[in-house]
């Protein structure tokens, strides 16, 4: 067996090199941590939406709980809103790809359109929130329907605000191909809003 202590005084050059390597390693690890942390958070928090979707399905399984066909909210506007939200996510992705290629102008325009479309989505869904009012027979249904829309809208508004902040920083010249984590995070949060809505859309309008 061989024994070795790995310590000996370093020369100044060696120390500088070591510090440089450590800084690079740390930056790499920070980037990996950020990506993984955000992914876990998304995977975790989406469960709150899954929970509400399951609640809807469980309650909806009771005969007579949902309003009769024809008295339910029309799916047309929500479908249009869903397509708008998907477009918004696609544009945000395109904006992020632009910033990774140092095309900041394209990023700013795509990102801004994505924000506007996201806002249009929220406005349309707010109209849906008020589109139905409870009667004696469907009070539970309306309450849950409204809760799900509002719960999602809160997330959409908060993440929309973050996207606005990213746009402002982008306009101030903060982002380029070597520094675009905030843009990537904003994009992934927009994905989250979209995925969460798709779950709700499926249970609210397709079941």
């Amino acid at each position: 067996m061989q024994y070795m202590d790995n310590y000996r005084p370093l020369t100044l050059e060696e120390k500088k090199k070591k510090d440089r390597e450590r800084a690079e390693r740390d930056a790499e690890m920070r980037a990996r941590n950020n990506r993984m942390g955000l992914a876990i958070f998304q995977g975790s928090w989406i469960m709150a939406f899954v929970c509400l979707a399951i609640v809807y399905l469980v309650m909806g399984a009771v005969p007579g709980w949902r309003p009769a066909e024809g008295h339910r909210p029309d799916a047309l506007l929500p479908t249009i809103a869903t397509l708008i939200l998907l477009t918004s996510s696609w544009l945000a992705r395109s904006g992020w790809r632009a910033v990774t290629r140092d095309d900041v102008q394209k990023f700013l325009s795509q990102w801004m359109i994505a924000i506007v479309l996201s806002g249009v989505f929220v406005v349309i869904m707010m109209t849906q929130f008020f589109a139905i009012s409870p009667t004696e027979t469907d009070i539970q249904y309306v309450e849950l329907y409204r809760l799900m829309i509002a719960y999602h809208a809160i997330h959409a508004v908060i993440i929309g605000y973050m996207m606005v902040q990213v746009w402002r920083y982008g306009r101030a010249g903060h982002y380029h191909s070597d520094n675009h984590w905030s843009v990537e995070a904003g994009l992934k949060l927009q994905y989250f809003v979209t995925a969460a809505w798709l779950i709700f859309y499926a249970v609210l309008y397709l079941t």
């Binding site: 876990i40 469960m47 709150a48 609640v55 309450e143 809760l147 719960y151």
Partner: peptide
């Protein structure tokens, strides 16, 4: 914790409402 706790959040939201 990351998978189950959001269910508590969902349940508590309903209760608070």
């Amino acid at each position: 914790a990351v998978m189950a706790t959001p269910f508590l959040a969902g349940a508590l939201t309903l209760m608070l409402l």
